[in-house]
C-alpha cells in the first residue's frame, strides 16, 4: 500500500471503520512509514481535541416540554373538546413530566454511552493484530525461545524495554517477538504458545487516559485480557480459554516481580 492511499484511509483507520484486510494493510504500512505514522498521529490528536474540547450542545430544559406540547396540537379538535378533556389534560401533564424525565435521563445516558468507543476500537486493533500475525505468517520478527535473544532485539526499536520471560517450564513456551502498531503507537509484542494456541502479548508504555477493562473481552471468538503493571500496559490476545489466559497473566506478573 502506498502513502497516498494510506493518507486517504487514515481517518477511517482511526475510526475503526476499515474492514479487516484493509485495516491490516494500513497497519502494516504504518509500521514501516514514519511520515504516515505522523499523519495518523496528528489526525488522532485532532479527533481527540474535537471530542474533548468542542462543545456538545445538550437540549435546554425547556425544549423537552416545548416538543412535548407541540405535537398535542396535532390531535384533531373534536377530540380535544370531547368529554375526555379533563382527563386528557391531566394525562398531558403527566406525559409532559415523563418527557422531561426521559429527556434528562437520556441526556445523561447518551453522555455516558458515548465514551467507550475508543476502547472498543483498541480491542479491534488488538484482535486484528493477532489475526494478522497468524494469517500473513508474520508471527515474529525475532524467532527465539531464548529470552536473552528476544529482549535485546527490542533495543533501539522502541521506547520501552518489555519484560521478556520464557515460561516454558510453566507450559507457555516463548516463541519470539515482533513490532506491531496499536492504539496509535508502536508496540512490543511477545509471542507465546500454549499447546496449539498462540498468545500475542502486546506491551506499550502505560497511558492513564487509555481505557482498559480488567474483565476479559471477547471479540470475534478471541479473548482479550488487559492489565497494567510497572508503568506498562499489557494485552494478551488469544483463542485460549479465559481461565488459561488468566493463568498466563498471573505467570507474566509473577515473572516480572
Amino acid at each position: 500500500m502506498e502513502c497516498r492511499e494510506v493518507a486517504g484511509l487514515a481517518d477511517a483507520f482511526i475510526d475503526g471503520e476499515l474492514e479487516a484486510p484493509r485495516r491490516a494493510a494500513v497497519a502494516a504500512h504504518l509500521l514501516g512509514c514514519m511520515d504516515c505514522r505522523r499523519l495518523v498521529e496528528e489526525t488522532r490528536e485532532m479527533v481527540e481535541a474535537i471530542r474533548d474540547q468542542a462543545p456538545y450542545y445538550t437540549a435546554p430544559a425547556g425544549l423537552a416540554a416545548r416538543v412535548a406540547e407541540a405535537p398535542a396540537l396535532a390531535l384533531p379538535p373534536d377530540i380535544r373538546d370531547s368529554r375526555w378533556n379533563v382527563r386528557r389534560r391531566a394525562r398531558q401533564w403527566s406525559l409532559a413530566a415523563s418527557f422531561l424525565a426521559v429527556a434528562v435521563f437520556s441526556s445523561l445516558a447518551t453522555y455516558r454511552l458515548a465514551v467507550p468507543t475508543s476502547g472498543e476500537i483498541l480491542v479491534d486493533e488488538l484482535v486484528s493484530g493477532h489475526v494478522r500475525s497468524l494469517m500473513v505468517d508474520h508471527l515474529t520478527d525475532v524467532a527465539s525461545s531464548d529470552q536473552h535473544t528476544v529482549k535485546p532485539w527490542f533495543n533501539g526499536k522502541l521506547d520501552l524495554a518489555p519484560p521478556v520471560k520464557d515460561l516454558t517450564t510453566r507450559g507457555f513456551p516463548l516463541v519470539g517477538g515482533r513490532l506491531d502498531y496499536v492504539g496509535g503507537r508502536p508496540a512490543a509484542v511477545l509471542v507465546y504458545r500454549h499447546r496449539q494456541h498462540v498468545i500475542n502479548l502486546f506491551i506499550v508504555p502505560d497511558n492513564p487516559q487509555r481505557p482498559t477493562t480488567a474483565a476479559p473481552v471477547v471479540r470475534h471468538g478471541f479473548n482479550v485480557l488487559a492489565w497494567r503493571d510497572a508503568g506498562l500496559q499489557f494485552w494478551a490476545v488469544s483463542d485460549l480459554a479465559v481461565e488459561d489466559l488468566g493463568k498466563f497473566r498471573e505467570l507474566v506478573r509473577e515473572a516480572e516481580s
Binding site: Y56, Y57, T58, A59, P60, G62, L63, A64, R66, V67, A68, A70, F99, V102, A103, S106, S107, A109, T110
Partner: peptide, 26 residues
C-alpha cells in the same frame, strides 16, 4: 425523544444559535 440532545446539538451546529436551534428542533 431519547434523541432530543442529538437533535439539538446537530441543529445548533448547523444554524448557529441556541434560539434558532430550538425552533428548528421543535
Amino acid at each position: 425523544l431519547p434523541h432530543l440532545d442529538a437533535a439539538f446539538n446537530l441543529a445548533r451546529w448547523l444554524v448557529g444559535t441556541h434560539a434558532d436551534a430550538q425552533d428548528v428542533v421543535q
